[in-house]
Computed example of a mutant assay.
Amino acid sequence: MTEFATLKEMGISSFELISRFSLRREHDRDVLKIYYLRPTTSLRPHSQKFTFARPRQAIPGQSRHSQAWQQLSDCSPMLQKALDELKQLTGSSEHALSPKQELLQDLQHLEKVVEAKLAEIREKIERLH
């Protein structure tokens, strides 16, 4: 087995630059976001987002509370393999944040993105004078 084969298959090659990752659910999809350690002046992205469709399979109604139903509603096998590899890379034993922590993290990220975009627009305005 090739080391980090799933991450390689996803197009990731700079394993040593991965700092952390997050996972959240959006409707019927799982969204994995991988964050990299990069200098602020780097032109390469500081994060990468991957979307995985949640598997949907029809099973009889009486089975919906069984172990089989639980396994069917879990995330995709590729995502599970990627999470295992990311945990190994980052030394993280747990990837999931509480809903409150996740929302606070999303809010902080959004604030940073908006501040950076505002600064960029202000610079462009200044150059016009």
Rank of each mutant, 00 (worst) to 15 (best):
E102R: 01
C75Y: 07
T51C: 13
Q105G: 11
I34V: 15
K87E: 05
S14D: 14
R29M: 13
R38E: 05
R29G: 01
R122M: 06
K81V: 01
S19I: 06
L37A: 15
Q88N: 11
A82L: 06
C75D: 08
H27T: 10
S93A: 09
R44T: 14
K117R: 15
Q67V: 12
R25P: 01
E26R: 07
I34M: 02
L97T: 06
E126N: 13
S63C: 08
P99Y: 07
K112R: 13
A53K: 11
L97D: 05
L79N: 05
L32H: 10
L128K: 11
V114E: 06
K117E: 13
L7I: 02
H95W: 13
P55R: 13
S92W: 00
R24G: 05
K117L: 07
Q48P: 00
P77A: 12
E3N: 09
L37D: 14
T40D: 07
A119V: 03
Q88M: 09
K112A: 13
L110Q: 14
S73I: 12
L17E: 13
L86M: 05
R122P: 02
K49A: 03
L7W: 00
H109F: 11
E126K: 14
I12H: 00
Q105I: 01
L118T: 11
Q88P: 04
Q57V: 13
Y35W: 08
R29V: 10
I34C: 03
M1V: 08
K8N: 04
I59W: 01
L72Y: 03
M10R: 03
S66H: 04
R64M: 14
L107E: 04
V114C: 04
I34S: 03
Q101Y: 04
I125D: 12
W69L: 07
S93N: 08
F4D: 00
K124R: 13
S13L: 07
L37Y: 12
Q48K: 06
T51D: 03
L43Q: 07
L128E: 15
E126R: 14
K100T: 13
P77D: 00
L104T: 02
L103H: 11
L83H: 06
S93G: 11
K87G: 14
G11N: 00
C75W: 08
L83V: 15
F4W: 06
E85K: 02
K49L: 06
I121G: 02
L104C: 04
L79Q: 05
R54G: 01
M78H: 12
E123V: 06
A58T: 12
A119D: 09
D84G: 08
I34E: 01
D106W: 10
S42M: 03
T6D: 01
M1T: 07
A116G: 04
R56K: 14
T51M: 12
S22W: 11
Q88K: 15
M10Q: 10
L7H: 04
L23Y: 00
E26T: 14
F50E: 00
K49P: 01
E94H: 10
E126V: 09
R20E: 08
H95Q: 13
Q71E: 11
L43R: 08
S63V: 02
